[in-house]
Design a protein around this nucleic acid. Structure first.
Lengths: 209, 209
DNA sequence: TACTATATTGACTCTCGGGTCAAAGTTTGC
DNA sequence: GCAAACTTTGACCCGAGAGTCAATATAGTA
């Protein structure tokens, strides 16, 4: 929004870029941790330890835990949604196959990398509006990937739903909870469980034939 | 709350029964609070305040926060499941109507009374086995109500599922998250949203005809 | 090399919330 | 009425974890 003087905006000095890279390192480490355990269960000491620095350093880059967490969650969300968007763009086949692939990839990421993602969307309602809005925005962009495929299938008559948004919410909920009940399974059993989950969720859009 | 005492009260003295009643008061108040906000967001001072006593009193009845919380969650779960069991026992009609009624009642309770119930099942994995097992047991009994209706419909051929347990997990997940996305709606809009949710979830068991 | 900007440290403060306990208050039973 | 049992209080301890900051180390630059 607020544009800066030209010399500050475009070609930032080497030092600035280095700082930028450091910020990214911190965010990506923090995203890992928050994705594994959720906001409450991660302390700044935890983040610092995984980065091999001390807590004080983090305050050189972020004003506080909340800001770091929101930025980390945005990093996590951008990564996750980005991968789904790429899949949606390249996947071939009829809508139900593409939808199934999306679901399958989503839960694979959830179970394997961000098992606590569910907790991240349970933002305490005591948080200020700005960060809550930013997290909702992540969710919107994420849902948009699924919504696209759903609308495609609805247009072609291959899908039918009671309500589009409700269907999306149900899918999202079931996928988000997947780590809870198949996180502990052996890898082959887990694969089968996730396959079954995908098949089950595809039923939500089945056209009565 | 319409629950019967969870604790088996063997000892008979008047004093003992009075103590038992006090325990139930505490549990039912604590269940309210934990159901509203979840474990982490409720302090013992909060529980004590709603009971118009001080924190110290709680330690006269429970050895610590965890024990109080687990007992309160069991109270909450017994109340909730009891209401669903009663509904399942009295409801008339074909399986899909009875299932729909169960779903509708479940989300009504979730949204109206225990909006944070979702958090209660996100038990930190650092907890000891005993309480975690007790909470899982609650979940089992709860699922059993739905499983009963599902099996009935499957037996009659009115339902078809990809996998019974997976279907249950999906239903449970979607119902648990309902408070997140229709908690803020006006009451009539909310009723419509919950109706739509119930219709959507019933699709999970639709037999391909 | 010397000087400056940047980055990191570690010891510090502060608050919150779980848990303890002796003392005071209340109820019970004789 | 009164002693014993039961219940509640409120002041206290403690550890965890967020946040602060002067001192120090490192990197960049002339």
């Amino acid at each position: 929004m607020s544009s800066q003087p030209v010399e500050d905006a475009a070609p930032v000095g080497r030092v600035q870029r280095k700082r930028g890279r450091r910020v990214q390192e911190i965010l990506s480490t923090a995203a890992e941790l928050f994705g594994e355990r959720g906001y409450d269960a991660v302390s700044l000491d935890d983040v610092a330890e995984r980065l091999d620095v001390t807590k004080g350093s983090l305050y050189y880059y972020f004003p506080g835990k909340d800001e770091l967490a929101v930025a980390a969650i945005e990093t996590l969300g951008a990564d996750w949604t980005g991968r789904l968007e790429r899949l949606a763009a390249t996947a071939e086949g009829p809508p139900h196959e593409r939808l199934r692939a999306l679901i399958r990839e989503h839960v694979a990421i959830a179970v394997g990398e961000y098992p606590a993602a569910l907790r991240l969307f349970l933002v305490p309602s005591t948080w200020p509006d700005d960060p809550r809005e930013r997290i909702k925005e992540l969710r919107r962009r994420h849902d948009q990937v699924f919504r696209g495929v759903l609308e495609e299938g609805l247009a072609s008559g291959e899908f039918a739903v009671t309500g589009l948004e409700t269907t999306l919410q149900c899918m999202h909920a079931a996928m988000a909870q997947a780590p809870l009940w198949c996180g502990g399974l052996e890898s082959d059993a887990r694969e089968r469980a996730l396959d079954e989950l995908a098949d089950t969720l595809v039923k939500l859009v089945a056209a009565a034939q």
